[in-house]
Simulated scan of single mutants.
Amino acid sequence: MKGYVQVYTGNGKGKTTAAIGLAVRAAGAGKKVFFAQFVKGCTYSEHEAIARSLPEISVRQYGLKCFIVEEASEEDINAARQGLEEVTTVLSSGDYDLVILDEACIAVHFNLFSSEELIRAIQSREKHTEVVVTGRYATPDLITIADLVTEMKEVKHYYRQGLIGRRGIEF
């Protein structure tokens, strides 16, 4: 079976959540999933649920903090580049049916690695490996090579009214 490239992008909420939903679906079908998170370094509730009950899903984080607010540090860049190197090995190994590159578009946006490097990693995958790339600011060249692109559009968001993230809902 051929694996495709999916991109979930846009300013709306739900990109990571959609990717996790696909990971759970794939695990339910007996598929092996590698969930790589760039930029993010905090523990999220989904990590705890996956660790407790979904051994088919491996989660690795390649970020030092929850978010890069202004400019990436040298440590941020090194963590992301190490992550991309590991992910390239995972993609070419054929060991996983689904590989999710969460916030890889943000990593490109913050110049942690280039869009060309990301695309080379994706193109190194085994034929059967499905790849999902998430994050705002998907580059035109990434969109071009993708087979499916979904844009999450913010229509209304309660953050604008001062609501902070809630455990179990946003993190």
Results as ranks from 00 to 15, higher is better:
Met1Arg: 03
Lys2His: 05
Gly3Pro: 11
Tyr4Gln: 05
Tyr4His: 04
Val5Ile: 15
Gln6Ser: 10
Gln6Pro: 07
Tyr8Phe: 13
Gly10Glu: 00
Gly10Ser: 06
Gly10Ala: 07
Gly10Pro: 00
Asn11Pro: 08
Gly12Leu: 05
Lys13Gln: 06
Gly14Glu: 00
Thr16Leu: 09
Thr16Ile: 07
Thr16Ala: 00
Thr17Cys: 08
Ala18Phe: 13
Ile20Gln: 01
Gly21Cys: 00
Leu22Tyr: 04
Ala23Gly: 12
Ala23Cys: 15
Ala26Ile: 05
Ala27Val: 05
Ala27Ser: 04
Gly28Arg: 12
Gly28Trp: 11
Lys31Tyr: 01
Lys31Thr: 02
Lys31Leu: 00
Lys32Cys: 11
Val33Lys: 04
Phe34Asn: 09
Ala36Cys: 10
Phe38Gly: 14
Val39Pro: 12
Val39Cys: 08
Gly41Trp: 00
Thr43Asn: 14
Tyr44Phe: 14
Ser45Val: 13
Glu46Met: 04
Glu46Ala: 09
Glu48Met: 09
Glu48Ser: 07
Ala49Met: 13
Ala49His: 04
Arg52Pro: 00
Arg52Ile: 02
Ser53Val: 06
Ser53His: 14
Leu54His: 14
Pro55Tyr: 07
Ile57Tyr: 07
Ser58Cys: 14
Arg60Gln: 11
Arg60Lys: 15
Tyr62His: 14
Gly63Met: 04
Gly63Ser: 02
Gly63Tyr: 12
Ile68Leu: 03
Glu71Ala: 14
Ser73Pro: 14
Glu74Trp: 07
Glu74Asn: 14
Glu74Thr: 10
Glu75Leu: 04
Ile77Val: 15
Ile77Pro: 06
Asn78Phe: 11
Arg81Leu: 04
Arg81Trp: 01
Arg81His: 05
Arg81Cys: 10
Gln82Gly: 08
Gly83Cys: 14
Gly83Trp: 12
Gly83Pro: 06
Glu85Thr: 15
Glu85Ala: 13
Glu86Gly: 11
Thr88Asp: 03
Gly94Ser: 04
Asp95Glu: 15
Asp95Met: 11
Ile100Met: 08
Ile100Val: 15
Leu101Tyr: 02
Asp102Cys: 03
Ala104His: 03
Ile106Gln: 01
Ala107Cys: 07
His109Pro: 04
Phe110Thr: 01
Phe110Gln: 03
Leu112Ser: 01
Leu112Arg: 09
Phe113Ser: 01
Phe113Asp: 05
Ser114Arg: 05
Glu116His: 01
Glu117Thr: 01
Leu118Arg: 10
Ala121Pro: 00
Ile122Cys: 08
Ile122Gln: 00
Gln123Phe: 01
Gln123Glu: 15
Gln123Gly: 09
Ser124Gln: 01
Arg125Phe: 07
Arg125Leu: 10
Arg125Gly: 04
Glu126Pro: 03
Lys127Thr: 13
Glu130Ser: 07
Val133Ile: 12
Thr134Asp: 05
Thr134Asn: 02
Gly135Phe: 06
Gly135Lys: 01
Thr139Ala: 05
Pro140Gly: 08
Pro140Ile: 09
Asp141Trp: 08
Asp141Ser: 15
Thr144Ser: 09
Ala146Gly: 10
Asp147Gln: 10
Val149Pro: 11
Val149Asn: 03
Glu151Tyr: 03
Met152Pro: 02
Val155Trp: 00
Val155Tyr: 13
Val155Phe: 09
His157Ser: 12
Tyr158Lys: 01
Tyr159Leu: 10
Gln161Cys: 02
Gly165Val: 00
Arg167Lys: 14
Arg167Asp: 15
Gly168Cys: 06
Glu170Val: 02
Glu170Ala: 05
